[in-house]
Simulated assay, not measured.
Amino acid sequence: MSSTSSGQSAGQLETRGIEPVPEGECNGHPLQLFWVWFAANISILGLPLGATLVAFRGLAIWQAIIVAILGAAGSFAVVGIISIAGRRGRAPSLTLSRAIFGVRGNIGPTLVSLMSRLGWETVNTTTAAFVLLSLCSILFGSPVEAKSAPVLTLIFIAIFVLLTLAVSGLGHATLLVIQKWATYVFGALNILVGGFLCATIDWSAVFNATPAPLSAMIIGVGTMAAGTGIGWANAGADMSRYQHRSVKAARLVTSAAFGAGIPLVLLITLGGLLSVGNNDLASATDPIIAIRDMLPTWMAVPYLITAFGGLLLSNNLSVYSAGLTTLTLGLKVKRVHAVIVDIVAIFAGSIYFMLIADSFYGPFITFISLLAVP
């Protein structure tokens, strides 16, 4: 396997926790981070974000594009700014923040960050399991409802968390390689799916749409930032701690802003285009099914594979960061064991929300959205 910036090879276990990275192992370059952020934001779930801008905010498509650039790419520029601290301090974001809050004072923001991270990872895992249930229903005629197929649901949850563990558990070197090459595969699938979705756009309604007031755009920028870069801001230094000291700060900011901004702006724009004159996607309780219904029947399988891949790429980075955050709270275990602790929590949460609770998306997304405030 190829060697990466940390001096390790992909497939080799990263044993370092939150202690500073030695200077001799810091050989990273910004293009690596570009692919990491690109992969983490290639999920087709970016489409509902754009749908809300048009359906609920009333933005014209040119306004939605501006909002996507300012809100999504702009908020990831903030992630890039925080990455500068990782290059200088050689440690994860929430470890470096001890210098500001103190070890005890740092527990509060670290705990909130970990809860938010675990919440979104549970959303990813649950959604991915629903995707696999839907895929299995198409291919083999099995039930699509989780409670109607509990054993299958448990298997699908296990598949997703084990795939996440395989990458996040091995660590930094493996993450860099997997995120880069998987981006090519799932990026191509996203383009294929997006091409078919474009055929459903009402172009006459798009060109005749009335622009919304400036206030709606400002609110939209805040909504996009909260749903994209702000949630990743506390992980900015987690990957950049392996960057070479000679890397310029501007290149770190650019790699995050463009790496995440390119897929997000494209997906948000497409989501907005799909919602001109049609509120189905914006109001759907299950956006995965809503998007699938817009596609030809034969496209359902590649679409669901695309959705699963995007969720997995996002989860890889999130769980890696959550493992470092867990160590920052003071848990005296190895990094890989901290990742396993987080994986177990995600597995248990997904089982509860899929097989025990009456509903999931509405109340749970409200909960983790509230966590984003502090």
Rank of each mutant, 00 (worst) to 15 (best):
L118P: 05
I100H: 02
R241H: 07
L270T: 09
F360H: 12
G194A: 10
W35E: 01
T174H: 07
V54T: 15
S275C: 07
V344L: 15
A146H: 12
A307I: 03
A40V: 03
L33P: 02
W120M: 04
L197R: 09
A233S: 15
A173H: 11
K334R: 15
S43C: 09
A73P: 01
W120P: 00
N208M: 02
G259M: 11
A64H: 11
I42N: 04
I18W: 00
M354P: 02
A91I: 13
G227S: 05
T326I: 12
I289R: 10
D238T: 12
P30D: 00
A235T: 13
V67E: 03
A345D: 03
V21W: 10
G169Y: 14
T126R: 00
G80D: 10
V373W: 03
T127D: 03
I289D: 01
A55P: 13
Y361W: 08
L281G: 04
I262L: 14
R57S: 13
S134D: 12
S240D: 14
V341N: 11
L13P: 11
L132I: 13
M294F: 13
L176K: 14
F156R: 02
A348E: 11
V319P: 02
E121T: 08
Q8I: 01
A322R: 05
N316L: 12
T122I: 15
G119W: 05
R292E: 14
S134F: 13
L70K: 08
A188H: 09
W181H: 12
D280C: 02
N316C: 15
I219V: 14
L31Q: 07
G86A: 09
L252C: 09
S318H: 14
L327S: 03
I66D: 00
I84K: 04
A290V: 02
M115S: 13
H244Y: 09
I159A: 05
K332G: 03
V21K: 06
P263Y: 12
F56M: 10
I84Y: 09
I365L: 13
S3F: 10
P92T: 11
R87C: 08
I262N: 03
R90N: 07
L154E: 06
F76W: 14
I69C: 02
S204T: 13
L266C: 10
I340T: 10
G259V: 08
L331K: 00
L139K: 07
A237F: 01
G105K: 03
G80Q: 03
N234E: 10
T110I: 07
F360Q: 07
A300G: 13
L163V: 04
N124V: 04
I65W: 08
E19W: 05
L264N: 15
G141H: 07
K334I: 03
S83Y: 06
K248R: 15
G50P: 10
F38Q: 05
V78K: 01
F140V: 14
I340N: 08
G102F: 06
V221K: 01
Q8V: 00
E121K: 02
F76E: 01
N279I: 12
